[in-house]
């Protein structure tokens, strides 16, 4: 069970691509501006009480409470790994239905899935699609699983830098 350097470099590149994709699309469609449902508001208020940023907390709560561009990127990677390019279009339809179930307009998830499919198709020459699944898990771990207060500060800084709050 040895891990070569080429695999690690591919994993790091795919982590960066997935992180940039879903954070930029979610910020552009206005997730940190307002909480969509009651649960996102609770998560944002709690993280602000613990010393984090309010708008970053709204961002993380919206990721938990409805399938946004993060779920769209994961679904696009899985269906591209299993079915090829037309699997990405099926994943777009599934994410749209899931967004409708969670009482959300659903533009961020649909657009994020489609852009992730196009990016994976463009990069599939030298990075296989299964590395994007691992890269997406690593990207969601750095936001939701490592250190919540610091992650909310970083997300709030990015949102203010893009002028979307």
């Amino acid at each position: 069970m040895e891990v070569s350097w080429v695999e690690l470099i591919k994993l790091l590149i795919s982590t960066g691509v997935c992180w940039t994709n879903f954070v930029l699309i979610d910020t552009y469609f206005g997730l940190p501006r307002k909480p969509g449902v009651l649960g996102a508001e609770v998560i944002g208020k709690t993280l602000e009480k613990m010393g984090g940023d309010l708008n970053g907390g709204y961002f993380m709560g919206n990721i938990v409470c409805s399938p946004d561009a993060s779920a769209g990127t994961l679904m696009a990677a899985i269906f591209y790994y299993l079915l090829g390019f037309k699997g990405g279009l099926i994943a777009t339809l599934l994410v749209y239905i899931g967004n409708r179930l969670c009482n959300d307009p659903g533009y961020a998830g649909t657009f994020g899935t489609f852009s992730a499919t196009v990016i994976i198709h463009l990069l599939s020459g030298f990075i296989e699609p299964r590395y994007f699944i691992g890269g997406m898990i690593m990207a969601i771990f750095t936001i939701q699983g490592l250190y919540h207060v610091g992650a909310s500060k970083v997300l709030g800084y990015i949102g203010r830098k893009l002028g979307m709050i």
Binding site: V37, C65, A71, M75, L94, I97, G98, C102
Partner: peptide, 9 residues
């Protein structure tokens, strides 16, 4: 994934 997101909502 859709089911677990619904219940955590």
């Amino acid at each position: 994934f859709i089911g677990s997101t619904l219940s955590s909502n």
